[in-house]
Design a protein around this nucleic acid. Structure first.
Length: 799
RNA sequence: GGGCCCGUAGCUCAGCGGUAGAGCACCUCCUUUGCAAGGAGGACGCCCUGGGUUCAAAUCCCAGCGGGUCCA
């Protein structure tokens, strides 16, 4: 880490007369203007000194603080960017939720493959961090939902030329720290009190020097200078034990916690009171919590002390509570009794905001992915609400937050919450009946309910062992819950060890170059010529690898093309096509011969049918969105030549009437006979125009080319535009999603099968792409060509 | 994305190779002035769908659809 020391010696620090010191409490190195300062400013070295002593000139609400930050940076040369959804898995597949503003620009912008929407830019990005869920409400400062205000600058080294989507330096460390200082000054902070702690940052394969910016005991900003990538030969060893070397791109990644800044401006005992004053008030009243002046005072003092409980020592929370109690000279249990309802209320407010973000950004509760997380948060919230005796309906509470956050799909949000609440209630009832039956059975046998049953109840039916104990007690049955219950459950899941032993066939594939995919270039072509690079014998038939192919492999629920490969001597049937790491495998009934020159011929009729079904599924998806709401997304699809199926995510069962309505809208669209176009815009342009629906369909972009495996899209531009704002990124301003498409008076259109849709001329606005048969897999370079601005990054996932 | 559980009468569920059962609800009658009343009788099932195994499938196997749940 000390290797980075030079990285922190900024000219700006020099000019401003900063001193570098080491904290005697935490051992970290930090920079300060105050020559007499000894400690770094971070708890436990320093206390929260802003409580009852606000750190800025004025008090700010959440909304005011956000605006203050954004307009300040706008005035200092940054372009304001609309926030991205909290569901980060809508544009990247390595994470579920947005946890930082930089998530918006990973991995394509940070790697230089595609340009940022603006440079430099500022943003206030809603984020959700589930990892602190147990701390929420208790520590006075943890929230699950928060906004990360940030300014970012994307730089590329001059030597790198123009091989990245941006070039040159916008600004780097000195300017970043200066901007940070200026913003503090603008807010009326005392610059003497600010400390910049050296804290190298590592994450997601990247690293760089970073500062934590402390003011009055609160960490108010983190300034990260992302400039290195993991490299075993690298010259820097970072705290994760890996080695890193400098990258060609280097990025200013800052984070200013909106809630913390608001809190410090108000100096309230907890962050929640500063951020959700109205809701806290409402909840207190509703739950009938009213404190005497004396109690109020006590709570106030206790909150100040619990403000710096160590976040990492959750186990010690009760011990810490006891310590606080003794410091206040009150009974520990009494204090807990007093604080517990308040903590619950804080958590409810925070969780409701989390839910508002999730449902507002069109996450639909389910058993997978972000939907599962949303479900867990909702159930937890429901338990808290019942626990503390708030009798307002949950959908109303979530709506309070949704309203404040400015979402316009609030009716849908409420509908989702009510539906989920009902399902949860049903699950609990079902569980109760099941446990009662089981308890009666074992009570009769005079045996304890075995652990196996408990695991089954929890794993398959969601019934906590505590609940089993409770119900069983009433039925007179015994239960023994082992201490390691949850690890027993985990064990049950852990069984499958994926065989990592790569087969000889896979090794052979690894040596082959990626197949050039001609099907992206011209969908009308049905014949091509290629060289047989390898032929791998299978149990039945062969896998033929070519240098290039028109054969479209199975993927995204679409079956593979069929056809033939012919040499002068022989013709083999292609009956299946698969893709492995960019290598296309043609399953054939015969061996065309390695090194042979072959002509490929597609089964044209089959291809046409598949294309029509492909387009048709998009039409259905669009229609479903019109009828059911903007939150509707494709969950999966199975296309065929005779029939196709589209699965969509929705929060309740689709009724017969809704299906009918979807058919009407879809058929109407078909009858309009629109053109299907294909183009390859820059990523942010595509997002701006179409929103994050771009990435739905669950189809992964082709890993190596960065392009989508599909080539058509049936999002008729006019249809989208007329349907209101298209971008989900702006769903905060989108219309209520329940509206149905009004069909003009025409009597129900004839049920034209989508496959009869006349094949519209397909145009491409992109310039021809130069081909290279062996594009290096790890290259960050965009493919060379006349459109170097990251065309490859435009991931038009429509499969 | 993976694991597991479940689709049987209107509802809740049992049955788990040999022609479909219980409780509640429903209908009829009797009894009874009650808090989920008591008695007698009765009606109600493509046992989710499609394949397979079998002399025989609600039951076993495979696939699909639907619902639930846990985990990442």
């Amino acid at each position: 880490m000390s290797e980075l020391e030079a990285e922190y010696r900024l000219e700006y620090f020099e000019e401003e007369g900063f001193h570098r010191k080491q904290c005697p409490v935490t051992d970290v190195y930090f920079w300060t203007r105050d020559p007499d300062r000894e400690t770094c400013g971070e708890p436990p070295a320093d206390d929260y000194s802003f409580i009852d002593n606000p750190g800025f000139d004025e008090e700010y609400t959440l909304e005011e603080m956000r605006e203050e930050f954004l307009s300040f940076f706008e005035e200092h040369g940054h372009e304001r960017i609309e926030p991205y959804p909290v569901a980060a898995n809508r544009w990247r597949d390595d994470v579920l939720l947005t946890q930082a503003s930089v998530y918006d620009f990973q991995p394509l912008v940070t790697s230089g493959q595609t340009p940022p929407p603006a440079n430099p830019l500022c943003i206030s990005q809603p984020c959700i961090r589930m990892q602190d869920i147990d701390n929420v409400g208790k520590t006075g400062r943890h929230t699950m939902a928060f906004e990360m205000m940030a300014h970012h600058a994307f730089n590329a080294r001059e030597e790198a030329g123009d091989q990245y989507a941006y070039s040159g330096e916008v600004y780097w460390k000195d300017e970043t720290v200066e901007l940070c200082d200026q913003f503090f000054e603008h807010m009326g902070a005392d610059l003497e009190e600010i400390t910049y702690i050296e804290d190298p940052w590592v994450g997601g394969g990247n690293a760089g020097p970073a500062f934590e910016v402390l003011y009055r005991g609160a960490e108010l900003a983190t300034l990260v200078f992302m400039s290195m990538e993991q490299d075993d030969e690298g010259e820097y060893e970072m705290k994760d034990g890996n080695r890193y070397s400098p990258m060609d791109t280097y990025i200013v990644d800052t984070g200013y916690g909106l809630e913390r800044w608001t809190w410090v401006s108000q100096g309230t005992p907890t962050v929640y009171e500063a951020v959700y004053p109205d809701m806290i008030e409402f909840l207190k009243e509703n739950a009938g919590i009213s404190l005497s002046e004396e109690e109020e005072e006590l709570v106030h003092r206790a909150a100040k002390l619990s403000g710096y409980l160590d976040i990492d020592e959750i186990d010690d929370l009760t011990a810490a509570r006891a310590e606080v109690a003794s410091e206040l000279d009150v009974d520990s249990d009494e204090l807990t009794e007093l604080l517990h309802p308040l903590e619950t209320i804080y958590a409810i407010a925070d969780h409701c905001r989390t839910l508002a973000y999730m449902f507002g950004d069109e996450i639909v509760p389910s058993n997978v992915g972000t939907g599962y997380l949303a479900r867990m948060v909702l159930r937890r919230t429901k338990r808290l609400v019942d626990d503390v005796g708030v009798d307002a309906p949950l959908d109303e509470l979530v709506d309070m937050q949704a309203k404040r956050l400015g979402y316009e799909n609030r009716d849908t949000i409420r509908d989702i919450v009510r539906t989920e609440e009902r399902k949860y209630r049903e699950t609990l009832e079902r569980g109760r009946r099941k446990v009662e039956a089981l308890a009666a059975e074992y009570a009769e046998k005079e045996e304890a309910i075995p652990v196996e049953e408990l695991i089954e109840l929890y794993d398959s039916h969601g019934i906590q062992p505590e609940m089993v104990e409770e119900i069983a007690a009433d039925a007179g049955a015994d239960v023994d819950v082992p201490d390691n219950f949850y690890s027993l459950v985990a064990e049950r899941h852990g069984g499958g060890d994926a065989s990592t032993a790569s087969t000889a066939r896979e090794e052979r594939l690894a040596d082959l170059p990626e197949t050039e995919k001609l099907y992206y270039d011209d969908q009308e072509r049905t014949e091509f010529e290629a060289v047989v690079l390898d032929v791998i014998e299978r149990e039945e038939g062969y896998d033929v690898v070519l240098d290039q192919t028109m054969f479209y492999p199975e993927g995204g629920g679409q079956p593979a093309d069929h056809g033939t490969l012919s040499t002068d001597d022989t013709t083999v049937q292609v009956t299946d096509v698969q893709i492995r790491d960019g290598v296309v495998l043609h399953r054939t009934d015969g061996n065309p011969g390695k090194g042979e020159f072959v002509r490929g011929q597609l089964d044209v009729e089959r291809r046409r049918r598949l294309m029509r079904h492909h387009t048709a599924t998009h039409i259905i998806g669009y229609a479903a969105r019109q009828v059911l709401g903007e939150h509707v997304r494709q969950a999966g699809a199975q296309k065929g030549t005779e029939r196709s199926r589209l699965d969509v995510r929705h929060y309740s069962r689709i009724t017969r009437e809704e299906v009918k309505q979807i058919e009407l809208v879809a058929n109407d669209l078909v009858m309009q006979n629109r053109a299907v176009k294909q183009n390859w815009p820059d990523r942010h342009e595509a997002e701006a125009e179409h929103g994050f629906d771009l990435y739905q369909a669950g189809s992964r972009r082709d890993r190596t080319s960065g392009r989508s495996p599909s080539t058509t899209t049936c999002r008729p531009a006019a249809g989208r535009t007329s349907a209101g704002p298209a971008t989900s990124a702006r769903s905060r301003s989108s219309r209520p999603s329940r509206s149905k498409t009004a069909l003009s008076g025409s009597s129900s259109p004839p049920a034209t099968p989508p496959s009869r849709r006349p094949s519209a001329p397909r145009t491409r606005s992109t310039t021809p792409r130069t081909c290279s048969t062996s594009r290096p897999r790890t290259s960050r370079r965009p493919p060379s060509g006349s459109s170097p601005s990251g065309r490859s990054a435009a991931r038009r996932s429509t499969g």
